[in-house]
Computed example of a mutant assay.
Amino acid sequence: MTKEDNTMMMSMNEKKILFTFGCPNRGLTVERLRHAAALAVDPAAKKAFYSLAVKLYEDATDEQYRNFYYNMRLDMEHTTHHKYIPDSQPVPVDMSIKDYRRSVKERIREQQMRSRRMMK
């Protein structure tokens, strides 16, 4: 972001990270991202968290960040990537537990038979 342009530019991954770890308070978000970077095991995730923390700390003012954050939340919440099913709604199940268990046992038997044939 440049100082003249009052817009923040972020990649979709950065927006997803901000959606997960962010809050309207820029200082708390930067601190949370630094903690997440410190705890991350994956080097790519560690780098992504830390770079976003630096980007927010250096390039944004509190007001710009707050406006961007609320607009980003609205955009991300309205972009559906999957069908939402509320927790209270029952989820249809295709087969009973008994049938599922039977199918798993059959698959295991088939795998065992294949491996025995391979060993002969």
Rank of each mutant, 00 (worst) to 15 (best):
M1W: 07
M1L: 13
T2S: 14
D5I: 02
N6H: 13
N6E: 12
T7E: 09
T7A: 14
M10F: 02
S11M: 08
S11R: 02
S11C: 11
M12Y: 12
N13Y: 03
K15R: 10
K16D: 13
I17W: 04
L18T: 02
L18W: 04
F19M: 12
F19W: 10
T20M: 15
T20W: 03
T20E: 07
F21S: 09
F21E: 15
F21Q: 12
G22N: 11
G22K: 03
G22L: 07
C23Y: 06
P24R: 15
P24V: 01
N25W: 13
R26C: 03
T29W: 12
T29R: 03
T29Q: 13
R32K: 13
L33Q: 04
R34W: 01
R34E: 05
R34D: 04
R34F: 07
A37Q: 03
A38F: 14
A40F: 07
A40H: 02
V41M: 10
V41L: 06
V41F: 09
V41C: 01
P43I: 11
P43S: 12
P43K: 05
K47S: 02
K47F: 09
A48H: 07
A48D: 15
F49N: 08
F49D: 01
S51A: 06
A53P: 01
A53G: 09
L56W: 05
L56S: 00
E58H: 06
D59H: 03
A60G: 12
T61Q: 01
T61C: 04
T61S: 07
E63N: 03
Q64N: 13
Y65F: 14
R66P: 05
R66H: 07
N67I: 08
F68R: 01
F68I: 13
Y69A: 02
N71D: 15
N71K: 14
N71Y: 15
N71L: 10
M72C: 08
M76T: 08
M76N: 06
E77T: 14
E77A: 14
H78Y: 08
T79C: 13
T79A: 14
H81C: 05
H82E: 00
H82Q: 05
K83R: 05
Y84H: 09
Y84N: 10
I85T: 04
I85K: 06
P86Y: 01
D87A: 11
D87G: 09
S88H: 09
Q89E: 14
Q89K: 15
P90G: 08
P90D: 09
V91I: 04
V91Y: 04
V91K: 00
V93F: 01
S96P: 06
S96R: 07
I97M: 09
K98E: 15
D99V: 03
Y100H: 02
Y100M: 05
R101T: 11
R101N: 04
R102Y: 11
S103K: 01
S103V: 01
E106Q: 00
E106S: 08
E106M: 06
R107L: 00
I108C: 02
I108Y: 04
I108E: 01
R109Y: 07
E110R: 11
E110I: 00
Q112P: 02
M113R: 12
M113F: 10
R114P: 01
R114W: 04
R114A: 12
R116E: 00
R116L: 04
R117A: 12
M119Q: 15
K120T: 10
